[in-house]
């Protein structure tokens, strides 16, 4: 990364950190929600953008994390136990789900995750004893950190914000290791990757499972933020929205999820005044984007440069 980009990134981070101080609590809530979805969408970008697999079940992992957090936080477990447990459970579920699907062939992971999401949704709705069914689980307590309560909107925002930064740093490090570069190899040309002995199935599976774990961790923050969970936000349509965020932002670009999440997760909230028209406009915009800008919004600067150079 060059210096101007590093500078821009740091400036954006500072602005993002300062902004909530000038917002009403709903604004802070939205910014926290943004960080939560960003965790899941960063994870999905690993699966979709780097490992090149379609996953239609990211919301299910978000939900698994959220329900676990709801149950365990209500039992009084500390956040530092709840977080890794959610991550590890989703990682393992990801391995179990992905292993048979990835062994077969390309599109099977899409089908498997779709079916999985529907199944998870049904369990959330029907297993009332555990999940509260359609009534969900209310009264989830905000966790505290070393005795410091994260009850307020701002403290919880900063906790979530720092967490997503840490997660992003971890993914950055991962993707810059030889291990991560193998993904570039896979995407470029599977034959080249095979000739170097890269185990395509194992790598893809691992990427998918790590992506699932990111969503599981995000789910913990979701439960603690909203303090009430029900099945609806973990419906398959939410998975589709997250997939759109990856594609709109530019799949396989590290910062693609940031832009994609702003557009896909926050715009609907801000443009509520358009009511039902919003979905139509949004749907049209997405289709237009996929036709004219398949590389996503982050590919615009490259395109411009390319055009400039062609003159």
């Amino acid at each position: 990364m060059n210096r101007t980009r590093t500078f821009g990134l740091v400036a954006a981070l500072i602005a993002f950190a300062v902004l909530p101080n000038f917002l009403k609590s709903y604004g802070v809530y939205l910014m926290t929600l943004f960080c939560v979805y960003l965790m899941a969408i960063f994870g999905l970008n690993l699966t979709v953008g780097y490992a090149g697999q379609m996953s239609l079940g990211q919301a299910a992992f978000l939900g698994i994390g959220a329900y676990q957090a709801a149950i365990f936080l209500k039992l009084g477990w500390p956040i530092f136990i709840v977080l890794p447990v959610a991550g590890i459970v989703c990682f393992i579920v990801g391995l179990i789900l992905g292993f048979p699907a990835l062994r077969v062939q390309h599109h099977y992971l899409a089908f498997a995750t779709l079916g999985f999401n529907i199944l998870v949704y049904l369990v959330m709705r029907n297993e009332e004893k555990v999940t509260g069914g359609t009534f969900g689980i209310p009264g989830i307590p905000r966790p505290s950190l070393f005795g410091y309560s994260l009850d307020g909107a701002l403290p919880f925002f900063y906790f979530t914000f720092l967490s997503v930064v840490v997660l992003a740093l971890f993914l950055w490090w991962l993707l810059r290791s030889p291990w991560g570069r193998a993904f570039a190899a896979l995407r470029d040309n599977p034959m080249r990757a095979t000739s170097l002995g890269i185990n395509i199935t194992a790598y893809t599976l691992l990427a998918f499972a790590i992506g699932a774990a990111c969503a599981g961790v995000g789910g913990v923050y979701y439960a603690a933020l909203v303090q009430f969970i029900e099945p609806a936000p973990f419906h398959f349509s939410a998975s589709l929205t997250m997939l759109l965020a990856v594609i709109v932002g530019g799949s396989g670009r590290f910062f693609g999820p940031v832009l994609g999440t702003i557009i896909v997760v926050l715009l609907p909230e801000w443009l509520r005044f358009m009511q039902n028209w919003y979905l139509a406009v949004f749907g049209f915009a997405v289709v237009a984007l996929m036709i004219w800008l398949p590389g996503g919004l982050l590919s615009i600067p490259e395109r411009l440069r390319w055009k400039g150079a062609a003159k």
Binding site: P178, A185, G197
Partner: peptide
């Protein structure tokens, strides 16, 4: 294999590291 087998966008060192991934 036949043709270009390097990962052009990666550095020479990173290409070597990928060769030793196993």
């Amino acid at each position: 294999p036949q043709g270009r087998n390097l990962f052009g966008s990666l550095s020479v060192r990173h290409n070597l590291e990928l060769g030793g991934i196993t």
